[in-house]
Each structure stands twice: as structure tokens, then as C-alpha cells.
Amino acid sequence: MARWGMVIDLNRCTACQGCITACHQENNVPPSNPRLAGQNRSIRWIDMMPMYEGEYPHTAMSLLPMMCQHCEHPPCIKVCPVGATFFSEEEGIVGQVYSRCIGCRYCTNACPYTVRQFNWFEPDVPPTYPQGTNPDVSVRYKGIVEKCTFCNHRLMHARDTARADNRNLLPGEFVPACVEACPTKAMVFGDLEDPQSEVAKQARSKRAFRLMEDLGTEPKVYYLREGRGQ
């Protein structure tokens, strides 16, 4: 039993957006175009959330990378009429079953973090792209909701390898693409249930906070506030 979670240190994040491109490359997210972007329908499994505070000249701004928070009590799974999304008790990941999705978008509406993305159109890819898709992740088509899966496919692969070698997962054996790509090592990932893991230690930091905690969703993505201290 594991509870996979993440801690993002906002002192170290420089908003380079490397996590976003790495995720899109890993998960075969279709490229967008001006039409989709103009309708705010670009698909982003992880995105930078900009928040301005204060008025000029006392302006401050936060930039948070935000992906599916893999809540312990996810609002999205409760509203799905066909069981296309589920909470894995073994891993703590909120999974998505593309083949069952009927595109009603109740889950997209229910998610308070607005991290679920709907394929409004067929992916618009040139004929040269399919050769370069990651074969570990299935490609979605029009009418399907998709979102961050904490690179579930990498977890399955790691579990299979560990099972074949008759051992447990090693720390760091499974990392999502975003965590791997982060150039400043702002993202730490691991099993929150393991009190000795780096992610559990950092989640206990005084600087740690979660988004919209008062909703009771119990997200598993923690952020470390910017500024000095610790």
C-alpha cells in the first residue's frame, strides 16, 4: 500500500515550464493550435497557475505548477456515471479509464482544481508524429477526459520489475516525468506513507501548504511557500 505524493518547493521553482513539456512528451498529449488556445481548450496535464497579489508598485506574484492533486477524497470520482475514473487504494492515485469515458464532463466540473482536460476535437497531429509517441501511454481521441496520472504507466513498469526481482520498490525507482525533468530539482516525489521518505519529511515542513485545504479533498500535492525560513 502506498500513498504517492509530491512536494513542490516554490523557492526552487523558476517557472521554466520544463515539467509541462516533459509531461506532454511522456503522455502523448496532443499539441494545441491557435483555435484551441483561443477557446482556452489547450490540453495541459500540468500548468503554471499565476496569481498576482497587491497593486502596482507593490506587486507580488506567485507561480505554482499545478497538476491533478490526487486527492484522498476526490470529488471527481463520485460524479462519474460510468466508472471511468477511480481511486486506487493500493497506490493512492486517481486513475482514468479512457475506454469507459463517455465525455459527459461531470468530473471536469466537479474538480475544484480544474485540472481535468477534455478532448474537444480530434488531436490535430501531422503524419510524422505517431512514430514518436511513447508506446507506454495510450493516445486519446475526441470525447475523452484526460488528466495527470502521476505517470501511472511508469509505476506499473517499476512494480513489474520489482516483482520480477522479488523485492520492493527502491526509493527513486518510480518518478513521474515532470519530477525527472525539473532542472532545479524543485519537485520531490515519493510515498507519503513512508515517514522516512524525502517527500514525507518535506510535507511536514512549516512552509508546507496545500491548495484549497478547507474543501476537505486532502490533496497529495504539497507546496513549500516561498521566502526564507527552514
Partner: peptide
């Protein structure tokens, strides 16, 4: 230089390889 990390440009570079 990058210690296993990549900025947004590097991670998108395959789109140049497969550029139609």
C-alpha cells in the same frame, strides 16, 4: 549543466525531429 533535468525547450525537441 543540467544534472538530469531539462527546460521546456529540450523536452519539446523531438517535435523538431518529427517536424513535418
Amino acid at each position: 549543466i543540467n544534472r538530469g533535468g531539462l527546460c521546456a525547450r529540450g523536452a519539446a525537441s523531438l517535435q523538431l525531429y518529427y517536424d513535418p
